[in-house]
């Protein structure tokens, strides 16, 4: 462990704002990139299922 205390860890020797904002941005950007396809998958599946159901209903009514 490089830092003596948790306060020192947060302060990063006067550079806390820069270090934490850089890491924060990195985490946010990576999470957005991971979460977006997860949400999108739900949307795609729902869309295709609706499409499938429409087709099945059409076939049933014919």
């Amino acid at each position: 462990m490089y830092f003596d205390s948790f306060e020192a860890f947060l302060a990063m020797g006067k550079h806390g704002v820069y270090v934490w904002s850089a890491y924060g941005l990195a985490i946010v950007l990576l999470s957005v990139n991971v979460i977006a396809p997860l949400l999108n998958k739900r949307k795609v599946v729902a869309k295709q299922q609706a499409r499938l159901r429409r087709e099945q209903q059409k076939r049933a009514s014919n």
């Binding site: 990063m12 020797g13 550079h15 820069y18 890491y23």
Partner: peptide
């Protein structure tokens, strides 16, 4: 963030390198 030693010139801001 926690274990790498700080750079002797740049101090802790050099930790941004690990993202950059």
């Amino acid at each position: 963030l926690a274990y790498a030693p700080a750079d002797y010139q740049q101090g802790n801001s050099f930790r941004i390198m690990y993202i950059h």
